[in-house]
Amino acid sequence: MRQLKHKPGLWTLLGLLLVACLPGFWWQPHQATTVRQDYRSEMAPTFLVPGSSATQNRFNDLVKQLNQSSKNKHSLLRVEVMENGHLKYSGQLRRGDRRPYIVVGFQNHHDGYTNILKQAKWFTIAFKALQATYKFNHFSGMGHSNGGLVLTLFMEHDLAKTGAHADRLMTIGTPFNLEVSDPNEDTQLFKDLTADRDRLPRQLIVYSIAGSKTFTGDGIVPFDSVNRGKYIFQGRVKGFTQMTITGADANHADLPENQQIAELIQQDLLS
């Protein structure tokens, strides 16, 4: 013991070691929360949401096309949300598939402001149920037409409550100002979306694709309505890119099967 007293180097080392350990002991109770914040599950599904009047089978051909053009084939699960909030499943997720496609359709898939708000809430029900089953905590989403609105509304209102992180969002022919082509007229939906844009995840990367059948739109959705996306996303998310597709299959209904859009999905959403 007397010998130990005469070892200043040893005491300095032990003292410094103890001091260095103190922050660790102090921080440990918060460790799980901190790790969970940065943790990303192995599984990160890609949610596909069809537009009005389309069912959960809307993207069957698109998924087949994407699987054919890629080395990594992904499984497809289809979920239909009934009006009473119950879920109907078809298809299945392959074990070990980390990037499966999950299509969420709605029994009430009609158009209109009130219906779109309801569909966003039904999407949240499906999302929470799937999250509880498959334990993912990050995902990407693609919405065609009103499907893009459903995903945007979900991200603004309910995503934070789920604790999940949205990586990428691709909206295809999404009418952020509904069918209104007048740049001076704002619909209630657009006002809602811009009012809550600060709730969008800061790390989200967004791609908005417009189809060009005529010089004013894709045959159904006016350009101006798609362009309104910039007032919602620009400056609020990590990245926002707008693209216009012309040529064959550029009308509103054909956009999901458009070859160029399939390539963009492969390149920007799934990579």
């Binding site: 070892k7 200043p8 180097g9 040893l10 300095t12 080392l13 410094l16 070691l17 260095a20």
Partner: peptide, 26 residues
Amino acid sequence: LLAWFLCRPDRAQRRLGSLCLVPTLG
């Protein structure tokens, strides 16, 4: 390093050990 300080290092050896202390702790 613990053993280095536990034995009887002379002044030069102690100084060498002290120099390496911070990086070794990390």
